[in-house]
Design a protein around this nucleic acid. Structure first.
Lengths: 348, 348
DNA sequence: CGCGGTTATGCAAAGGTTTGCAGCCGAAGA
DNA sequence: TCTTCGGCTGCAAACCTTTGCATAACCGCG
């Protein structure tokens, strides 16, 4: 039923190659011919068969996007942005979800590898060496992680964590806890490093709690630990954990920010809606999505088209740009001055 | 670089057609041969080229999933379920997001249509006639909407709305508001119909507020209207709106459930985390995703493979199953008995 | 009038796989 | 011994498009 290039050629009285060129290299065909062909194509409802095209060009015009968990509100904005940017460049995006599971992540990326032109690895939990191995199979851009030799787009959570700690120091807090993220997360490591440094510089004590599941549940589960640790402020791996923690603290009768200050990371939409509104480190997720798509597309427009021939795979990626996007601390209502010690916090 | 079927054939000393059959029709090849071929394939890292296969079979092994807004927590579980089910059947899912925009929805479905074997239309805002037109281009399964002649999987929000209203009636409420959903939403219509009927049957008055954006913002914006309307209970189109409304009411000094009872729909993860915990109609989103994928795959395994020949497109869909999935009311803390009139609600 | 140079088009190979058909071989039946 | 049949494999066409190369028409210039 669907019209092929041949039908269009017949209808417009030209050779199929002319039809092909009308679409893929319009400047090579006589304007007059072009309009005629275009008209016939339109008329017949012709759309080039992507599979056939892929077969010969070696380009599927699809890209894969692998995230840890679609249900985590951190990802959707990034996904949307990536999708939009890709569509803009006539690409489509496969989104896949690993459920925070390293093994699933590995499977998925292999399954995807063969039918996309490149893969965006967003907040991967895999080891660097695994990532490098994958990148030998298929062009990869890594989001939220630094991997030597691979193009990366990162959000400067180090800077963000530092700002957060400094904000807390400024409010007088000297005993601070960091709720760590999941094992294998680069972001979690960066935060830890930056937060430790900032705390040390400010003469504060930083207790590390983790690793944890980066969810509300994960945050809530730590409430008791936080209380017992006696800290007056907490920096959480992400907003979800921060929110969970606030719930958990509330259940224990501790109020935020009067008794404990809490800072999140990500600035998900939800963080504006909880009570208290969350102080958090805003990460430029949409920008990251767009940038990553651009880098990926750049990457394989550079690659020699018939790159099937040996070589070229691992070697020539000298354009391994690494982009660091800025974060910014958004102060809302979940942080406040350190409680005066000795004064009763629980009551009127 | 990637090994082709020919490489495997050479390595294992058989004809390419045998290799092909080893993968696509194993029972046709001698077990002995099969293991040898498989071994060679494994060895060379051979993976059938999906584009080439698609070219000849006419099946891409991709399906499209179009949703209104990935960022709405209602969708991710459905997406995950669909994706999992699809992967299970060796299909991949393109997720696309229309931003609640009818025009974008139409564009997207057309763009997708040509490169997938079928499309899942989830909570479409398009008109029925548009949907039918699309379904002439590509197999379609509709989620959360009833379209005559098309396979649909619906969640019984009518029943859900009825339960919710009856729950409120049971608590003594007689003046209830329904926060309507977005224009074009089938779910919104169903809810309205069922809620009206149930209210009438219970001798209650139901005010309709809407249509609205199905987001927290949309819900929050209605707080003032709700207060002025003097109702004692509200059924919201979804949890997001319910949560937004509760925030908004709070800002106006109205407490939930003491002053106003609020019921949501969807039972998103978040509804368990807000304070008060939300009473809501749980919808089986994951089941819907799985079912829809199965129906779609069923649909085009029925279709004659070389269905390029005319006919077959619109006609033979006599298996247009329509599945209705049950919903269930989950009573939590956002609903309570109707406030005693005349008693001061605002104070100690 | 012929020549070099554009410009527009046609030709045909190639890309990796599936699949109907035909052929081979050995075994069972006559 | 000769068919027949079934199981397995090979052959080659077909799927639709892109693209390097060849061809043809045309222009302007000498």
């Amino acid at each position: 039923m669907p019209a092929t290039i041949r039908d269009v050629a017949r209808a417009s009285g030209v050779h199929i190659s002319t039809v092909s060129r009308t679409f893929s290299a319009p400047h090579l065909v006589n304007p007059e011919t072009r309009v005629r062909v275009l008209a016939c194509a339109e008329d017949l409802g012709y759309r080039p068969n992507r599979a056939a095209r892929a077969l010969i060009t070696g380009r599927t015009h699809n890209i894969g996007l692998i995230v840890a968990d679609i249900a985590n509100p951190f990802f959707p904005p990034l996904i949307k942005a990536a999708e939009g940017q890709a569509r803009h460049r006539d690409y489509h995006v496969f989104v896949a979800d690993t459920n925070e599971d390293v093994a699933a992540e590995e499977d998925l990326v292999h399954a995807l590898a063969k039918q996309v032109d490149g893969v965006l690895l967003c907040s991967p939990r895999m080891s660097n060496s695994l990532i490098e191995q994958v990148s030998r199979e298929v062009p990869v851009v890594v989001i939220n992680r630094q991997v030597a030799g691979l193009p990366c787009v990162m959000m400067d959570v180090g800077q963000g964590a530092r700002s957060a700690i400094e904000h807390l120091l400024g409010l007088g807090h000297r005993r601070i806890a960091l709720l760590g993220g999941p094992r294998g997360s680069w972001t979690a490591r960066e935060m830890r490093r930056a937060a430790s440094a900032a705390a040390r510089a400010g003469g504060a004590e930083l207790s590390l709690l983790g690793p944890n599941q980066p969810t509300e549940t994960g945050g809530g589960a730590l409430a008791d630990q936080v209380r017992r640790s006696g800290v007056t402020a907490v920096l959480a791996y992400n907003d979800l954990m921060a929110i969970g923690l606030i719930e958990g603290l509330d259940a224990l009768g501790l109020r935020v920010p009067q008794d404990v200050s809490v800072v999140g990371v990500d600035d998900i939409a939800l963080s504006r809606l909880t009570r208290p509104k969350l102080t958090t480190v805003a990460t430029p997720t949409a920008a990251a999505g767009r940038t990553a798509v651009d880098m990926l597309l750049q990457l394989d427009s550079d690659a020699p088209r018939g790159a099937r021939g040996r070589g070229a795979a691992a070697g020539d990626r000298r354009t391994t740009a690494q982009v660091m996007l800025q974060t910014v601390l958004v102060v809302r209502d979940s942080t406040g001055p350190v409680p005066v010690p000795g004064r009763d916090c629980t009551g009127a």
